[in-house]
Design a binder for these strands. Structure first.
Lengths: 229, 229
DNA sequence: CTGGGCTCGATACTTCAATATCGATACTGA
DNA sequence: TCAGTATCGATATTGAAGTATCGAGCCCAG
């Protein structure tokens, strides 16, 4: 049984909550590897992220990596397994559409490579922005996106345009045969079923924050502690 | 029984998933109100957001607003109830810490008022940024934050600094007696229990996107369809 | 005026995530 | 060499979220 078929089998049974926690583990594991640690216990991982040790062990189980009693999990092996599981072992190529402030922030973020993402081009429909240099990328006109995507084997589109332009820009991406869209606009996009859309909605997080502020017995800590909410 | 005690009672039984969906309803409801619609059925709300009608009805139930058979829910009443439930009926005052690209993007975002948020000041530790005008705000030095917060009755801090500066900036916010922190950095903040931290983690969304792209039978649609995942 | 059909609210059911508990394992230190 | 202990994996229990179904209400059409 190859590692690949194993992860394929497990993937179907994977809950989203688990997938969401994997990057956090990965970040910490990389820091530990940089320190030269070879093993780490699920207990330690849990403490850092305010989780229960059992959850961590269950999450890590989907990677197929076995831990050793009293020692913990092999750091490097775990990193490779998580990267492979998420498809982050080779960076996916992405184009950014919408060269506003948010687009600039994402373009300038050093570290997407660690998350399996490489932004290879920036596009905008606004003639005033086209041609400008932005974080090392020259902003190109939206009309040139299809050719760029086809030639560059681009799989992902990052959508950071103003809301009114969102659906049209998404249509361009879809026609360019992009596989997935990371949608930072507030618009629900209409796309064919083969295109995956991941919507990043600030309002959701803000709603949770507001709600927790109103809660009488709101507790602190970081992020949303899954327990006792 | 006042409306307030009612919502207080229900709040304790509210799941987070429900809270996260409320802003989406709110957005659509406002659009409908602008069109002059007085009633809307849960079925319609569900279709727009790719949800099951039952979920919508259950979510709306926590607001205490009753719908009428064959007619649906009263749009305006529902808007007011959701706003009140989330505490968005009066905008919370917030300061932004970190005047980089992401900070600029958030400062420039027209529409936080609709989500119960008003950014009233921008701060940075970098002398080169201090004094600059940014989206109608003058960037102030971090040292002046405590006084600003105390005088301005500021409740929230929005953290958009680079990762290495995150914990220190959070400490400043905590000492200034801020009640909640909207954390856009990748750092797990250490804060006292009375301070609520909401972490906005791009890596989570990216992980979900990557995972769905790898899924053989990945389906499209928008956001993460809760059913059949 | 009266039946049809859409929509609501409530209840019961199913699925999934989080938690608790257990025996098994292998390193530590006497 | 051998008890002690931290950690693992597995199983069972709890709880929350989503799903399915039902009777009841109310508008509309005939």
């Amino acid at each position: 049984m190859t590692n690949d078929t194993l992860s394929m089998e497990r993937m179907q049974r994977t809950g989203l909550s688990c997938v969401r926690r994997l990057p956090a583990y990965l970040q910490l594991l990389r820091a530990l590897r940089a320190e030269g640690r070879e093993f780490v216990s699920g207990t330690v991982l849990a403490r850092v992220h305010y989780l229960e040790p059992v959850i961590v062990r269950k999450d890590l189980a989907i990677t197929g990596v076995m831990g050793k009693p009293r020692l913990g999990f092999p750091v490097n092996e775990l990193i490779l397994a998580i990267e492979k599981f998420l498809g982050w072992d080779r960076a996916a190529r992405a184009v950014l559409v919408g060269a506003g402030n948010l687009g600039a922030a994402l373009l300038g973020y050093q570290g997407f490579e660690d998350f399996g993402l490489r932004i290879v081009g920036a596009f905008d429909a606004d003639p005033r922005k086209i041609g400008r240099e932005m974080k090392g990328h020259r902003v190109l006109p939206l009309q040139r996106l299809p050719g760029f995507v086809a030639r560059g084997k681009v799989e992902l589109g990052i959508l950071t345009v103003p809301a009114p332009a969102a659906q049209a820009a998404a249509a361009v991406l879809v026609r360019a045969r992009i596989r997935g869209i990371w949608n930072f606009t507030s618009v629900r996009l209409q796309v064919p079923p083969e295109v995956v859309v991941q919507k990043e909605d600030l309002a959701e997080g803000l709603a949770v924050l507001s709600h927790r502020l109103r809660q009488p017995g709101a507790q602190g800590g970081d992020s949303v502690p899954p327990r006792q909410v």
